[in-house]
Structures are given as structure tokens and as C-alpha cells.
């Protein structure tokens, strides 16, 4: 039963991920992404990561997805001219080349998995009460040995926000511009 659920969830997430790339309509792509996130959340749950599964649904399926939808709505989605232009972007040879690279990478990976002796995961039988990711343990790891990665991620988000604003803003309103320019001259 648990095995069957795993295969269903895996198939859903892979097929939906394919749909994200293939579908021409951005809104459809976003919906496919939601399906993929949900499938992955189910796999987390089956593997014993209850907290991560919930977070995956809440943060990715909820918050991130709404952001994606907003971005898609703000762009000129559904514009037939833009759609036609985008569909012509990829040539057949490029597509074939990409598929060949991806296919050979997949083949290498499959051979490697087949030839490596990995412990077979037993879904649903060995977890401690409360799953493999109790909040206390996560918090201790996050603020203990991994505090550097955790705090680094916050700096990363700050820098990303600054970078996105720099790229998105076309020009600065006059007073500040004048102030910065004179300051640069004095520097």
C-alpha cells in the first residue's frame, strides 16, 4: 500500500514537472508546478518527514505559488503574438541536443543506481513517534552546527532583494539622484 502510494506520488511529481516545461500557457505551468509540489510533499510524508511535508504544502504550495501566479498575471500572459514568438524560440536541433544530454545523464544515473548497493528504504515502519523531523531536533540543528548556513541564508535573501530592486528599477527620482551624484563627486 505504502509502496503503491510512493509510486503514484513519484509519477505525479515527475509528470507534472514535465508539464511545467512543456505547456505553452504560463498559468497551466504554474498549476502543474503545484501538482509537482504536492507529489513531493506526499513523498516526504511517506518517508517520515511530517514537518517538511506540511511546510512544503504551506510555503511552496501556498505562498510561493501565489507569488508565481502574481508574476504571471503581471506579465502579458496569453498574448497570442508573444506566445507564437516564444514557441519559435527553440529549434528542433536544439531540442534534440538537449534531450540527448538529458537522456544520457539519466542513463548514467540509472546505471549508477543499479550498480550501487543501497539500503532499501522501508516506508512507514521505522519512524519514531512524531516522524523523523521533530521540531526540537530541527531547531537544534538550525541554531547549533548549521547556524552559519541559516544566518547566511538570511543575508542571501537580503542581497537578493537588493539585487532584484536594482535590476527592476529604471531610474531614481531626482532629489536622491542629485544627492548621490554630488556625493560621488566629493568622494
Amino acid at each position: 500500500m505504502v509502496d503503491l502510494l510512493f509510486y503514484v506520488a513519484a509519477a505525479v511529481s515527475v509528470l507534472c514537472a514535465l508539464g511545467v516545461v512543456v505547456s505553452a500557457n504560463p498559468v497551466q505551468s504554474v498549476m502543474m508546478l503545484l501538482g509537482s509540489f504536492t507529489g513531493i510533499a506526499l513523498i516526504y510524508l511517506l518517508a517520515g518527514f511530517q514537518f517538511l511535508a506540511a511546510i512544503q504544502i504551506l510555503v511552496y504550495g501556498g505562498a510561493i505559488m501565489v507569488l508565481f501566479l502574481f508574476v504571471v498575471m503581471l506579465l502579458n500572459q496569453g498574448d497570442p503574438v508573444a506566445l507564437a514568438r516564444e514557441q519559435g524560440v527553440l529549434h528542433k536541433e536544439q531540442l534534440a541536443g538537449g534531450l540527448a544530454v538529458a537522456g544520457s545523464a539519466l542513463a548514467v544515473l540509472l546505471v549508477a543506481v543499479a550498480r550501487t548497493d543501497l539500503p532499501r528504504p522501508i516506508f512507514g515502519y521505522l519512524w519514531p513517534e512524531g516522524g523523523l523531523d521533530p521540531l526540537l531536533g530541527m531547531a537544534q540543528a538550525m541554531f547549533g552546527p548549521y547556524v552559519l548556513a541559516f544566518e547566511g541564508a538570511s543575508v542571501l535573501l537580503l542581497a537578493t532583494a537588493v539585487g532584484v530592486m536594482t535590476l527592476a528599477k529604471r531610474q531614481r527620482n531626482k532629489p536622491v539622484a542629485a544627492a548621490s551624484t554630488s556625493e560621488e563627486a566629493s568622494a
Partner: peptide, 8 residues
Amino acid sequence: EEPFLGEH
């Protein structure tokens, strides 16, 4: 781009 030197 000089007005953006702060972000830079």
C-alpha cells in the same frame, strides 16, 4: 548608473 552606486 551612478545613482545606483548604493545598491552596487
